[in-house]
Nucleic acid binder design. Sequence first.
DNA 1: GGTGTGAAGTCATACGTATTACTAGAACGT
DNA 2: ACGTTCTAGTAATACGTATGACTTCACACC
Lengths: 331, 331
Amino acid sequence: MHATSRPTSRDVARAAGVSQSTVSLVLGGKWNGRVSPATAASVQDAAERLGYRPNQAARSLRLGTTRTVLLMIPTIVPFFGDVHVGAARVAARHGFAVVVYPWPDDAGPAASPFAAPHEAIDGILASSLAPDVAAGIGGAPLVMLDSDPSGPVPTVDFAVADGMRAIVGHLAGLGHRRIGHLAAAIDQWTFHARGDALAAAVTALPGGAYTRAAAPLDVTASRDAAGTLLDAPDRPTALVCDDDVMAAGAYKAARARGLDIPRDLSVTGFDDVQLAVALEPELTTIRLPAEDLGAQGMTMLLDLLNDRPPPGPHSLPGTLIVRDSTAPAPR
Amino acid sequence: MHATSRPTSRDVARAAGVSQSTVSLVLGGKWNGRVSPATAASVQDAAERLGYRPNQAARSLRLGTTRTVLLMIPTIVPFFGDVHVGAARVAARHGFAVVVYPWPDDAGPAASPFAAPHEAIDGILASSLAPDVAAGIGGAPLVMLDSDPSGPVPTVDFAVADGMRAIVGHLAGLGHRRIGHLAAAIDQWTFHARGDALAAAVTALPGGAYTRAAAPLDVTASRDAAGTLLDAPDRPTALVCDDDVMAAGAYKAARARGLDIPRDLSVTGFDDVQLAVALEPELTTIRLPAEDLGAQGMTMLLDLLNDRPPPGPHSLPGTLIVRDSTAPAPR
DNA sequence: GGTGTGAAGTCATACGTATTACTAGAACGT
DNA sequence: ACGTTCTAGTAATACGTATGACTTCACACC
């Protein structure tokens, strides 16, 4: 067993010669006129000396709250780092901590053999979660991020459709008509929304031609999928990618075929992660306000936790960042 | 207040017409010969009907354990996704969950205005943590990952020195002698270790010349720092980068000066993240077994939690992945 | 001197669970 | 008929905290 078990508030009380209640009052800072400054000081001193830290389980049980929120994400990538920063900033202002739980996409909560940590928290901020999985969570107040806003769950997402329309507008202005879509083969709302908006915008274009190939979010697979688009007769003059990483694959496919970007082929990404400026030429893409997503989501969740009426779904606009990967269509 | 408060085990007991103890026994699965199958079934049925989930705070208080471990990381990047996968796999086998806590590098635990979540867990797996911060954690069993192994805390890290020596060996074999170091300007053990090993290995080379420039882990800053190395008289024929992201900056600096990689300049990275194959040419780098790091660390932590003697520090070897960014030195 | 009032604490309790010790009854052997 | 053993449960308790209700004492007021 452990060498020394942690001191409890009762130990502190004994050391300071007061009752446990007094310790709790002092350390809780609520001794306005109930405890004399001298006693308070001696309690604080004793607590310090013993290295007392309150037991969180007992505190949670008593208070019925953990002041902790779970941020569920599908995968650990920098994008969610920004989301976390935004959420954590808002949370901290209200005394909440944000802990991250990478949700394995292949396993639902039922698959967990253990008591899932989402039972030990006050609320959940879930990104890119399928509605049926969300339904299985049960109990904890939930706000979905970048997910299907048409469901009953409060949601904040990106205006990805607007983003795609902005890209098509940009490309159309450069004379592009045959536009290929390098689509993410991932069953998440955000990618469905991106694809639908893109297809609609392109086909609405006079003379617009939409082609499509899908791949997982992986450079090599994206390269191969992009290849099939580029090898088609009447190949597209622009490739719109669902994600910056996929654009890296498109670059590779283009180079392998001797196509110069952006002279022979324009390429666009989505998300504006660090990779976008690492690529050469630097990538035209849509910047998404990830930090705002986290902040807005947390604000909503706090509303929920305080039984304030949950606001309706909220959409955050992206920004078209024009860099060097797009140029007038070759004639 | 909330519409309906969650059902407790007592509610289930009432619904099933038994005592709370019986509910606990049945749901805990320990009713070997103590409860009749019929009663057990009716309890399970009632629990199901009411949607009962045990209160984790109460359970933790009673059992003195949360079966949850915190993985503290400096920043949310894919590398730590692999670490998490390894840790979670081992943890799950023992009924533990792993939750991620991004440690804000500017704020120690004392800076937290709220009860830090690391009080509500059984142990901590801390990556890239400065020893003094680690000391401030207090109480919870701790294993450090990829951190200074010379301290008193159990540690598992990468053999980064060996990795750097492998890179120098590779470059030396290609005829390189003037080697520039694009160093990460981050105060973490792993980067200090990389730098020290590299400097030693290069200067030990007959005719070896070591130069150095530092930058944060950022493409643009790395590009500028690489520029100062390339603009020096007698410029290096190879650039060794502390991290793959920095290599992307080196690529940009080289291109801006009309230098072809790898003909005029060899470049190497470290970590082998996705970016390494997105770059063109693909990057020669050191692959680190991130998943093993998490798995080994969790194994150690479980030893600690079970009062088994903590094994000594453990080093995991990296692997040199030779791709297309290194070639014989120009003469 | 009795009553009121404020200060400085303490007492008792509840949060929801897991588990040990106990009990009521049945079955059973002799 | 009576002790023994087994079955099927229940009662009681402890984990450590926060807090509303209560007590004790000193002092002041009339």
